Amino acid sequence: MHRFKDLEIWRLSRKFCSDIYIVTGNFPDSEKFGLTNQLRRASVSIPSNIAEDCSRSSNKDFSRFLEIAIGSIYEIETQLLIALDLGYIEQIKLDELCFNSDRILKMTSKFRSKLK
């Protein structure tokens, strides 16, 4: 069993989630139940799944929850590109968020591969 608060990927994903909340706070009100909701839910899913992973006794279970977190990262990247297409975020903000999500993705993937 791992202590999730000690994991750098959990800390980074928690910060990333806060960044997503801040960015989506500037989205139009018409997106409240659209992209805003989707991005926020997916971003919360990342640190939540990592934390839930830590309660698992087997590496197979742990690996599955990390896989779900990875899926959420890809979901967020797609939704951020859509937000860019719609003019809700600027390219520089997209680049910053994608850099951070890619960092979390790489760390999570590496951690997951060590569990096998």
Rank of each mutant, 00 (worst) to 15 (best):
L105D: 06
T108K: 10
R103F: 01
L97C: 08
L94P: 15
I104K: 00
K110T: 08
Y88R: 07
R14I: 03
W10L: 13
I20G: 08
G25W: 06
C98Q: 12
L81W: 02
K110P: 07
Y21C: 12
G87A: 00
A83P: 08
I9F: 10
D6T: 12
N100F: 02
K32T: 15
Q91E: 15
A69S: 09
Y88G: 15
R14K: 10
L80S: 05
E8F: 05
L80D: 02
E31S: 00
T78W: 04
I73P: 11
R11W: 04
T24A: 06
Q91H: 10
N49Q: 05
F65R: 13
L84Q: 02
L66S: 03
A51H: 06
S58V: 00
E96K: 01
E75V: 03
I92M: 10
E77Q: 11
P47N: 04
H2N: 12
L35V: 13
C17G: 08
R64I: 14
H2I: 05
D102K: 14
G87E: 00
R103P: 00
I92C: 06
T108P: 15
L81G: 14
L66G: 13
S63E: 06
S55W: 02
M1S: 03
K32L: 14
R14S: 11
S48G: 14
S48E: 05
A69G: 10
E52H: 08
G25F: 09
P47M: 07
S57Y: 07
I82M: 03
Q38G: 08
S72G: 14
R103T: 11
F62L: 01
K60N: 02
N49S: 09
R40M: 06
T24Q: 03
F16Y: 15
M1E: 09
S63W: 00
I104M: 00
R14V: 02
A69Y: 02
I9K: 02
Y21H: 08
T24G: 02
S72L: 03
D6P: 14
T108V: 05
Q38T: 09
R64P: 07
P47C: 07
H2D: 11
I68M: 08
Q91Y: 15
S101E: 03
R64C: 10
R112D: 02
L81K: 01
F65H: 12
S63R: 04
R14W: 14
K110V: 05
E67D: 12
D95Q: 05
S30E: 06
P28Y: 12
G25K: 07
S57T: 13
A51V: 12
I76L: 09
Q38P: 05
N49M: 02
R40I: 05
M107D: 09
S18H: 14
